[in-house]
Amino acid sequence: MSFLLAVLASVLFLCTSPSEGHAPSDMELEYDYGSQVLSVTITHTTPAPSSHYVETVDVYRNDILVLEEHYDSQPDPRTFTYEYEVTAVDGDILRVHAECSIQGSIEDEITVEGPREYMYLSVNPTPEEVEMGSELDLTVNIYAEEDDMPLDGVSVIPRVDLGLVSEVSELGLGGYAFTYSAPDLESEDIEVLNLSCTKNGYHPLYFEISFDLVLSIDDSRKIEIAMDPWIYGIDEGETREINVVVTAGGEPLDIGTLDVDYSKGSLDVEKIGVGMFRLTYEAAHVDADTSAFIRVSASMIGYRSDERRMEFVIRDTGSTGEEPADGGGPAPYTWGLVALAAGAILVTASLVFLIYSKRKGRGPPGEKRGGRVYEAVEVEEVQEDS
């Protein structure tokens, strides 16, 4: 019985008129990333492959037509495979549309999988504060990390918590621009701007900046901090005084206190006048040259705050901050007697200091006391006649 059914099906297949067109019944897609070859396998049953066949095959990459092929027959009366060279990267969507020469079509798509590269960006400007109710134009430049080449075609999506952002415009050469509109709020707040950047063939990139939303005020209500002297380097254990002047509109501002932060030492703050403070900083003892900072900020209701951050290096001088092992004591003198005429004698006394030093292999060794090395330095000579 099954044999008779098979024979009947074959007869019907051979008797089918070529003019009775129909769509391909199946399509399978495969993509080889290494060779960049797309394989399209189509099933289209026909008794006359030269007159009833798949006539066109169109290939789209991310909805853009990249390949269009026309045929005047199909290589097999049932199932066959075409191969096309199509350049693609990870994340690209390849869509294939095939049409019968008489009627009907079929379509399928595949997402390319492959290695991804990295990209990085820069934002200009990167504001610390934006006045409420104002607008700020920002530019984002995106580059390939491997060769620093500008990247076009990146999807850049900005998001903010409080304000509004415009649509992103692509400038070319890896540049993208949008406008931030700051809200009008009753009090100052902090805005957070997030950037989401995606491009096929690259890892997604996320970037975040935050800035203060401040009241729109004139220069007379903007606080300015001046610090003098500005420290760039200080020896371990050394004490420095720094004068801080707080003004607004060029006039001293009578604020109660300063907000001060620091590292690697101790700091005292003393108010010495209207808008005037004295900082006394003592550097810590360190084992190697070490970075440190002093940060000063000032704020007052109705004024825009200001901040200064002083960064410097604490130099390792070899001092431990300890007394010598022998307990110190008076500095020794080197005495001398010189005979003069008429029986007079000149007594000389040279004052000598013993200074502790690690020396670190530099210069001749000094006198050793209690495991330390000292250098003798002559600093003064006293003469007495007798």
Rank of each mutant, 00 (worst) to 15 (best):
residue 197 C to R: 04
residue 198 T to I: 12
residue 199 K to H: 05
residue 199 K to R: 15
residue 203 H to L: 12
residue 203 H to M: 11
residue 204 P to Y: 07
residue 205 L to C: 05
residue 205 L to Q: 08
residue 205 L to M: 10
residue 206 Y to M: 08
residue 206 Y to L: 06
residue 206 Y to H: 11
residue 207 F to V: 01
residue 208 E to R: 15
residue 208 E to Y: 05
residue 209 I to T: 15
residue 209 I to L: 14
residue 210 S to G: 08
residue 210 S to E: 12
residue 211 F to W: 02
residue 213 L to F: 06
residue 214 V to N: 05
residue 217 I to E: 13
residue 219 D to Y: 12
residue 220 S to C: 04
residue 221 R to V: 03
residue 221 R to H: 15
residue 222 K to M: 09
residue 222 K to H: 12
residue 223 I to D: 05
residue 223 I to T: 08
residue 223 I to Q: 07
residue 225 I to P: 11
residue 226 A to W: 03
residue 226 A to Y: 05
residue 227 M to P: 00
residue 227 M to C: 08
residue 228 D to G: 03
residue 229 P to T: 02
residue 230 W to L: 13
residue 230 W to K: 12
residue 230 W to M: 13
residue 231 I to F: 11
residue 231 I to D: 08
residue 232 Y to F: 09
residue 234 I to E: 10
residue 236 E to S: 10
residue 236 E to F: 06
residue 237 G to P: 10
residue 238 E to C: 03
residue 238 E to N: 06
residue 238 E to T: 02
residue 238 E to A: 15
residue 239 T to K: 12
residue 240 R to E: 14
residue 240 R to D: 03
residue 242 I to T: 09
residue 242 I to E: 07
residue 244 V to C: 07
residue 244 V to N: 04
residue 245 V to W: 01
residue 246 V to Q: 04
residue 247 T to D: 09
residue 248 A to G: 08
residue 251 E to C: 02
residue 253 L to M: 10
residue 254 D to C: 01
residue 257 T to A: 04
residue 257 T to C: 01
residue 257 T to W: 10
residue 257 T to Y: 13
residue 258 L to N: 10
residue 259 D to A: 09
residue 259 D to L: 04
residue 260 V to Y: 03
residue 260 V to D: 07
residue 261 D to W: 02
residue 262 Y to P: 00
residue 262 Y to I: 01
residue 262 Y to S: 05
residue 263 S to V: 05
residue 264 K to I: 13
residue 264 K to N: 14
residue 265 G to H: 07
residue 266 S to C: 02
residue 266 S to Q: 11
residue 268 D to V: 12
residue 268 D to Y: 09
residue 269 V to M: 10
residue 270 E to K: 13
residue 271 K to E: 15
residue 272 I to V: 15
residue 274 V to I: 15
residue 274 V to P: 02
residue 274 V to R: 13
residue 275 G to W: 03
residue 275 G to E: 03
residue 275 G to L: 02
residue 276 M to Q: 15
residue 276 M to F: 02
residue 276 M to V: 05
residue 277 F to A: 07
residue 277 F to C: 07
residue 278 R to Q: 14
residue 279 L to D: 06
residue 280 T to V: 11
residue 280 T to I: 11
residue 280 T to R: 13
residue 282 E to H: 00
residue 282 E to M: 12
residue 282 E to N: 05
residue 282 E to Q: 14
residue 284 A to S: 14
residue 285 H to S: 04
residue 285 H to G: 03
residue 285 H to M: 11
residue 285 H to C: 03
residue 285 H to A: 03
residue 286 V to A: 07
residue 287 D to W: 10
residue 287 D to G: 13
residue 289 D to Q: 04
residue 289 D to P: 07
residue 290 T to P: 10
residue 291 S to V: 00
residue 293 F to T: 06
residue 295 R to S: 15
residue 297 S to E: 09
residue 297 S to W: 00
residue 298 A to M: 02
residue 299 S to G: 14
residue 301 I to R: 13
residue 301 I to C: 01
residue 301 I to D: 15
residue 304 R to D: 00
residue 304 R to Q: 08
residue 305 S to L: 00
residue 305 S to R: 09
residue 306 D to T: 01
residue 308 R to S: 08
residue 308 R to W: 01
residue 309 R to Q: 08
residue 311 E to T: 14
residue 311 E to H: 06
residue 312 F to P: 03
residue 314 I to D: 06
residue 314 I to N: 05
residue 315 R to V: 11
residue 316 D to T: 01
